[in-house]
Each structure stands twice: as C-alpha cells, then as structure tokens.
C-alpha cells in the first residue's frame, strides 16, 4: 500500500514540477506547513499510545474479554478499543490470536469497531480541526454504534459457527 501511495505522490509531484515550478514549490511549502502545524500533537499521541500498548498484555486482555465475559466484556473491549490506537496490521492479527485464545466474537467486534471509530488519545488532534463539540459527539456516537456492530457480528458468527 505504501508503494502505491508513494508512487502516486511522486508521479503527481513530478508532473506538477514539469508543469509549473512555482506552484509546485508552493504546494510543498503548504504540505510542510500543514505537517508542522500538527506535529506537536502527533508526537504527544505517539508517546501516549506507546505507553498504553506497553501496559496492556495479551493475558490481561483475554481475561477481560473472553467469550464468557458477556456484556461487561463487550463494554471493556469497547473501552480498550477506544483508548488504544493500534495500526490495523497489528490489531487484526492480535484479534485473531485473541479469538483463537478464547475471546468472544462479540467482544472482538466491539474492540475492532471502537478501535477504528473512537480515538481518545487522538482527541486533541481531532479537536484542533473540528472543535471540541463535534469531536466529542463523533467519538460518543462511534462508541455507541460499536455495540450494534458487536451485536450483529456476534449473531452472524453464532449462526455460522
């Protein structure tokens, strides 16, 4: 995926440079400004995420969100998903390991869904762009919606099992 992204960006950049040097320079300046603008928050987010990831281990997660853990387990899974920011290519294999280790599909559904929709640690960044109100509403709605996702996934997986 990175390769595609880089190829697209590079080809467009070259095309832009051939067409208009001044505009290209301007575009890069804007790119840098947009990046530097948000860098302080990025760095804080990354540091906090690393701390959280280091504190949670598989054993603990499994105890909390096993398939017998019910709605409390779903709630916990949703909270864990909300406060963590794990890249998908780490989250999915981890989720798969958790399922084979006894975690319930409903719980994993809640975890995956809040992981994607809700970002507590990225809230400062989100507020910077969208304001407090919208950021909080969006995350709250995502959190609530994740229970529906969890429920439906739980039902479907049960039927298929």
């Amino acid at each position: 995926m990175n390769i595609i992204l880089y190829s697209v960006a590079a080809s467009l950049l070259i095309l832009s440079f051939l067409k208009d040097r001044e505009k290209t320079k301007n575009a890069l300046k804007k790119a840098w400004k947009a990046f530097e603008n948000i860098l302080p928050q990025f760095l804080v987010v990354i540091a906090l995420v690393s701390l959280l990831l280091s504190l949670l281990d598989h054993q603990l997660i499994l105890k909390l969100i096993g398939s017998e853990s019910g709605w409390l387990g779903i709630l916990l899974a949703a909270i864990v998903g909300s406060v963590t920011l794990i890249p998908g290519f780490v989250a999915f294999p981890t989720a798969a390991i958790l399922v084979s280790g006894g975690a319930g599909y409903m719980q994993i559904g809640a975890f995956i869904s809040t992981l994607m929709m809700v970002g507590i640690v990225t809230l400062p960044v989100e507020m910077q762009y969208f304001g407090k109100k919208l950021a909080i509403y969006r995350n709250t709605l995502g959190f609530v919606f994740s229970f529906l996702v969890a429920f439906v996934i739980g039902q479907v997986m049960e039927v298929l099992a």
């Binding site: 992204l5 960006a9 950049l13 290209t24 575009a27 790119a31 840098w32 947009a34």
Partner: peptide, 14 residues
C-alpha cells in the same frame, strides 16, 4: 505521512 501531505499540498494548489 510524507506522501499524504505532498498530495494535500498538490491538491491545495492545483
């Protein structure tokens, strides 16, 4: 991040 922001800058300008 670099390709995303480069694309952003290009989008903004072009």
């Amino acid at each position: 991040i670099p390709p995303i922001f480069v694309l952003l800058g290009l989008l903004d300008v072009w």
